[in-house]
């Protein structure tokens, strides 16, 4: 049994004309991890994933899947990898089951795969649509077929590029349940998502890329601990509490009876802030301190919100 990393990415570079989409990204993902790949739009996440799948050709660097180079050992690396592409693509000529059967066929699988296809259809809630034409499916159903196509050859490493984009809340929860199950069964999961709450809930380790560079790679806990600030919610007795000028630049927002202030972890004292508010005539009746979440860390690291 190979004991090296599930995915190794070594100093990879990719240029599209003038755009330097990957600038020497370098990290590894261990077997059995639930790994999150985050970054704003255009950061290079899809480029990275597509290079792993052989859809993008790198200008420099190397990638392996369970030790197999994605260029020189592409047959093995592709057998070990399942990719759910970001775009909702399908072949309008075929039905759901046919789509899965042909995909399994491309991997050289024979009749033995039929029972696995039945299981997949069940798990993805597609059993009653097995003979429906792909054109007749809703967006959420098409997305599930894509996931089925990626899993039909039972790859140990599964990469999902924004699998919940455009999927409603209920289905999102269902999909995460299914992906959690895959992870529990021993699959390595790599995920990019737009929903940071999802990454925060699911992933053990998170990489943040921005402008084609890795800006952070850490366990979720350590990444959250990096948050250099926290938010103080102060509730006052009057509507629209007054805030003295010296606290102006710390205000995140004011709504109804509450003022939210961003405090730097080591520099700002909560007591001094409360004193200053009282001096300005605000009568404080309650307060709450909130640590940064992944969203805040993300904004601090990339300097932009993910939208």
């Amino acid at each position: 049994m190979y004991s090296g990393p599930a995915v190794a990415i070594r100093e990879v570079h990719k240029r599209y004309g003038d755009i330097h989409a990957l600038k020497g990204v370098d990290f590894t993902i261990d077997q059995g991890e639930f790994f999150g790949l985050l970054g704003p739009n255009g950061a290079g996440k899809s480029t990275l994933i597509n290079a792993l799948a052989g859809l993008v050709r790198l200008d420099a660097g190397q990638m392996t899947v369970l030790g197999h180079d994605v260029v020189t050992g592409y047959r093995d690396s592709r057998r070990l990898l399942g990719v759910v592409p970001q775009e909702l693509v399908y072949d309008p000529f075929f039905r759901v089951r046919e789509t899965l059967r042909f995909q399994a066929g491309y991997f050289g699988l024979g009749r033995e795969v039929e029972t696995w296809i039945d299981e997949l259809l069940d798990a993805l809630n597609l059993a009653d649509r097995a003979t429906a034409n792909m054109r007749a499916l809703s967006g959420g159903m098409k997305r599930r077929v894509l996931i089925g196509q990626a899993l039909v050859h039972k790859p140990p490493v599964v990469v999902l590029d924004e699998p919940t984009a455009g999927v409603d809340v209920e289905l999102r929860q269902q999909l995460w349940g299914f992906i959690r199950r895959l992870h529990a069964e021993g699959h390595t999961i790599v995920l990019t998502t737009h929903y940071l709450e999802d990454a925060e809930e699911l992933c053990d380790r998170i990489a943040i890329v921005d402008h084609g560079e890795l800006v952070a790679l850490d366990t979720k806990r350590d990444l959250l601990a990096r948050g250099i600030s926290r938010t103080l919610h102060v509730y006052s007795e009057q509507k629209a509490p007054k805030v003295p000028d010296k606290l102006r630049d710390k205000v995140k927002r004011i709504h109804d009876y509450c003022v939210e202030l961003r405090l730097e972890r080591d520099r700002d004292s909560i007591v001094e802030v409360l004193d200053a508010l009282r001096d300005a005539g605000t009568r404080v009746c309650d307060l709450r301190v909130e640590d940064d979440d992944l969203e805040d860390v993300f904004v601090q690291l990339t300097g932009r919100s993910r939208q």
């Binding site: 859809l55 592709r78 057998r79 592409p85 693509v89 399908y90 072949d91």
Partner: peptide
Amino acid sequence: QSKVTGNIVFILIAPLS
């Protein structure tokens, strides 16, 4: 057709020479 609809990716990610 596969290129325009994008479903060619599922052929390109298969281990076919």
